[in-house]
Computed example of a mutant assay.
Amino acid sequence: MTTSTGLPAVADVSTAAATITEYVRHTPLMRAQVDGRPLVVKLEHLQRSGSFKLRGALNALRGGERPDRVVTASGGNHGLGVATAAKLLDLPATVFVPETVPEGKARRIEQSGAELIRHGSTYAEAAAAATAVAARPGVRYLPAYDDAAVIAGQGTVAAEVVAEAPDVDAVAVAVGGGGLAAGTALAIGGRVTVAVEPQGCCALHRALEAGEPVDSPVDSVASSALGATRVGTLPLAVLTAADTRSVLVSDDELLAARDRLWEEFRLLVEPAAAVPFAAWLAGRVPGELPCIVLCGANTDR
């Protein structure tokens, strides 16, 4: 089992951008006004595999020794990102998911050519089973967020934002295990990282209060994407050192935000992707011109 365990640096995001550029979509930015307030929206839900997760998976898999097989655990989006990356790189892949995985995400993982194994009722149980399989020779386990190469790959989302919209002064992202938020903090050059979580699954918020990763309950309509029971050690270290604002939203707020994205812009995203927009609508995102990242659209609405 091989993971990138050193703390990622700003330069790693630039290296990741060059590493993955031939495989990923450079997703568009949209400048808009809602209720008379300006914002920038990063349409990352248009990414191949339906979420930003492809970026980190590709960056991790293209670095180091090529394994015989890649194995991972996921609530859905990371597994789909790994399955898609493995297909692009002609690698066999196995994805462990909890039995509660949304059928749309499970179907897309299998359609990408990966072996899908349902195990346990939580992401943590699926991850334990995947880690055991990855102990076999020639198999690489790819973490969903607690990996330096994965974090650097996810940081390329925000790197595109600040390159195209340097007037943005804060970037708001949804948080599960913290990989996207940590990559954002590395990429945005001292701007504010707004880390938004549902009230029912807020592993980063609890870790910031405790000063270390702690177990957190998972109970949210967005838990298939944001349901990490414990934030990653590397993401927490990056976010603790950066200008990070931790924000919570209710399920009612995030679902209303998802519906408004459709009504206002005809943007169809999964509940987790609407979390930062919900925080912005509620006035909890600082800055004169923040960017809201819509991170995924793996939904069967």
Rank of each mutant, 00 (worst) to 15 (best):
I109L: 02
H45K: 02
Y23M: 01
P213W: 11
G177W: 08
G75A: 14
P276H: 07
A11G: 15
H205V: 12
G138D: 12
G56V: 05
A83E: 04
K42N: 09
T27D: 08
A272G: 15
T21Q: 14
V238C: 10
G63N: 14
A185H: 06
V171T: 02
T229P: 00
E110M: 05
S49G: 07
L186T: 11
I151E: 09
S220V: 03
E22H: 12
I109G: 06
L116S: 08
A174P: 13
H78F: 12
G50P: 10
L61G: 09
Q154H: 15
L58Y: 04
S223H: 09
T244L: 06
H205G: 12
L142A: 07
S14Q: 12
E288V: 02
Q33A: 14
T94S: 14
L255V: 14
A172E: 10
W262C: 08
A297T: 05
R284D: 12
E44F: 09
S112R: 12
M30N: 00
R284S: 10
M30W: 10
G179V: 09
K53G: 03
R136K: 14
T100E: 05
A279I: 00
P137E: 11
G176W: 12
G79C: 10
P67C: 05
D215A: 13
R48L: 13
A257G: 06
A86M: 06
S223W: 03
A242W: 10
I188L: 12
R245Y: 01
R62S: 02
A127F: 01
G64W: 05
R37H: 13
G64V: 10
A163C: 00
E160R: 08
S4K: 01
P137S: 12
I151P: 01
L239V: 06
L58T: 06
C201L: 04
V133K: 08
V101N: 03
V157F: 04
A135P: 00
G200P: 05
L88Y: 10
L88A: 15
A282E: 15
L254F: 07
A93N: 07
P28W: 07
S224P: 00
L208R: 15
Y123R: 02
R66S: 09
R31C: 03
V192S: 04
I292Y: 03
G283L: 00
V157G: 01
A207N: 11
A187K: 05
R140E: 13
A106N: 09
T5I: 11
L226C: 09
P92H: 06
A135C: 11
T233L: 11
A18R: 15
R260F: 03
A9H: 14
A297W: 01
D68A: 15
A57S: 14
L46K: 06
V214N: 06
A228F: 04
A57Y: 04
R191F: 10
R107V: 09
A241T: 10
A149L: 15
D35M: 05
A93F: 08
D259V: 00
H45E: 12
H119M: 12
D90A: 15
R230G: 01
R245C: 01
A130N: 09
R107W: 01
A282V: 02
R136V: 01
V247C: 00
S250M: 05
L80N: 11
D147I: 09
R108H: 08
A148T: 07
P67W: 07
V34I: 13
T3L: 14
A134G: 08
P137K: 11
Y145Q: 04
A257K: 08
P217E: 12
T100S: 15
G211V: 06
Q33K: 13
A85N: 10
A182Q: 12
